[in-house]
Computed example of a mutant assay.
Amino acid sequence: MSQAPSRHRPFRPRRAVPALALAVGVGTLTACGGVEGPASQGDPVKVALGAAGGTGAVQAGDRLRVTAKGGVLTEVTVTDSRGQQLPGGLGNGGTLWTSRAKAAPDTKYSVVARTKNAQGGVGAAKESLTTAKAAGLNTLTLGPGSPGSVVGPGRPLTLTFDFPVTDRAAVERRLSVTGDRRTAGSWHWAKDRNGRDRVDWRPAQQWKPGTHGTLRAALDGVYSGGGRYFADDYDLNFTIGRSCTDSDMGRDCGKVQVSDPVEVTAPSERGEDNRTTGIGDWHDG
């Protein structure tokens, strides 16, 4: 299938405004074999970008909305500065696209909207926007408290938040625990003794001593509730030691015997409620 090629200049607005109304010209149709065919005649599709709530300016926590007038949207792609896509879906007969996830604070989003008019002509609009900084931030503390810590086989990993977390599902989806020896586990929410929100990861079975693991909280831009967002990702590497009891604390409890000689040594630590938090078993009750 062969057709004479034609050139098409994508629409580029002269200046960015808070309510990004994009007039999309009729584009070129890609034919078989990757050759572009001539555009069909017809009125251009007008595309507008704003918040799902109806406002033109998009704030942190809003859902993005892309609308088409005089045709339909065939594809909408929204990516942040790290290349991660903001998921969403088409609706209202193809004239509306809405993101399923909320926009993060202080984040640049690039938007590509592809359209088709009633005569079959296709077009595309490209635009970007940057959301405002969040009014409030949430931060957290990882436990064990230092990179490379030696952790007992049954000891939970903890994240303690400085402010309440009301959207726990959104936070939990961005948490992960991995190790060079696969171990299943689960998350449990609780309060620490100061009343702060805390989430613990407990292994279904005790880790094998010598295992190297990583706790990752990819929370940059995630909404935690109460008007607050996270502005960082968090990582903590750890090594699993052998089981310890209180009677072991004065001996070699802090050593991990992976091979000969001993590869990792860490001091013992005592934590809240007189429990072993640096190394050794976690005793509930």
Rank of each mutant, 00 (worst) to 15 (best):
residue 1 M to R: 15
residue 3 Q to P: 09
residue 3 Q to L: 11
residue 7 R to Q: 15
residue 7 R to E: 14
residue 7 R to F: 13
residue 9 R to K: 12
residue 9 R to P: 08
residue 10 P to S: 03
residue 13 P to T: 06
residue 14 R to S: 15
residue 16 A to Q: 04
residue 18 P to E: 11
residue 19 A to I: 12
residue 20 L to R: 01
residue 25 G to F: 14
residue 27 G to P: 05
residue 29 L to T: 04
residue 32 C to P: 15
residue 34 G to W: 09
residue 37 G to D: 05
residue 39 A to W: 13
residue 40 S to Y: 15
residue 46 K to V: 14
residue 49 L to K: 00
residue 51 A to E: 00
residue 53 G to T: 05
residue 54 G to M: 00
residue 56 G to K: 00
residue 57 A to Y: 13
residue 61 G to D: 00
residue 65 R to A: 04
residue 65 R to N: 03
residue 69 K to P: 11
residue 74 T to Q: 05
residue 75 E to R: 03
residue 78 V to Y: 10
residue 83 G to P: 02
residue 86 L to K: 02
residue 89 G to W: 03
residue 93 G to A: 06
residue 97 W to H: 03
residue 97 W to Q: 02
residue 101 A to T: 09
residue 107 T to G: 09
residue 107 T to D: 05
residue 107 T to C: 10
residue 109 Y to V: 00
residue 110 S to M: 15
residue 116 K to F: 09
residue 116 K to N: 15
residue 117 N to K: 02
residue 119 Q to S: 15
residue 121 G to T: 00
residue 124 A to W: 04
residue 128 S to V: 06
residue 131 T to K: 10
residue 133 K to V: 10
residue 134 A to E: 05
residue 138 N to A: 07
residue 138 N to H: 06
residue 140 L to F: 05
residue 143 G to R: 09
residue 144 P to E: 01
residue 144 P to R: 03
residue 144 P to F: 01
residue 146 S to W: 10
residue 148 G to Q: 04
residue 150 V to G: 06
residue 153 P to W: 01
residue 156 P to A: 00
residue 168 R to M: 08
residue 170 A to K: 09
residue 170 A to Y: 09
residue 170 A to N: 07
residue 171 V to K: 04
residue 176 S to Y: 11
residue 176 S to M: 13
residue 177 V to G: 02
residue 181 R to H: 12
residue 182 R to L: 04
residue 185 G to M: 11
residue 185 G to E: 01
residue 186 S to C: 11
residue 187 W to L: 05
residue 194 N to T: 14
residue 198 R to Y: 06
residue 198 R to P: 03
residue 198 R to V: 07
residue 204 A to V: 09
residue 207 W to F: 08
residue 209 P to Y: 03
residue 215 L to D: 00
residue 220 D to L: 07
residue 222 V to A: 02
residue 224 S to E: 01
residue 231 A to R: 04
residue 231 A to F: 06
residue 231 A to L: 06
residue 234 Y to D: 01
residue 234 Y to P: 06
residue 236 L to R: 06
residue 237 N to I: 12
residue 237 N to A: 14
residue 237 N to D: 11
residue 238 F to E: 00
residue 239 T to L: 10
residue 241 G to E: 08
residue 242 R to I: 13
residue 242 R to E: 09
residue 243 S to D: 05
residue 244 C to E: 07
residue 245 T to M: 07
residue 246 D to S: 13
residue 246 D to A: 11
residue 248 D to L: 02
residue 248 D to G: 02
residue 248 D to T: 01
residue 250 G to R: 08
residue 253 C to W: 02
residue 254 G to D: 00
residue 256 V to R: 00
residue 258 V to Y: 10
residue 261 P to Q: 08
residue 261 P to F: 01
residue 261 P to H: 15
residue 266 A to G: 10
residue 270 R to Q: 12
residue 271 G to I: 06
residue 273 D to T: 11
residue 274 N to A: 08
residue 284 D to K: 12
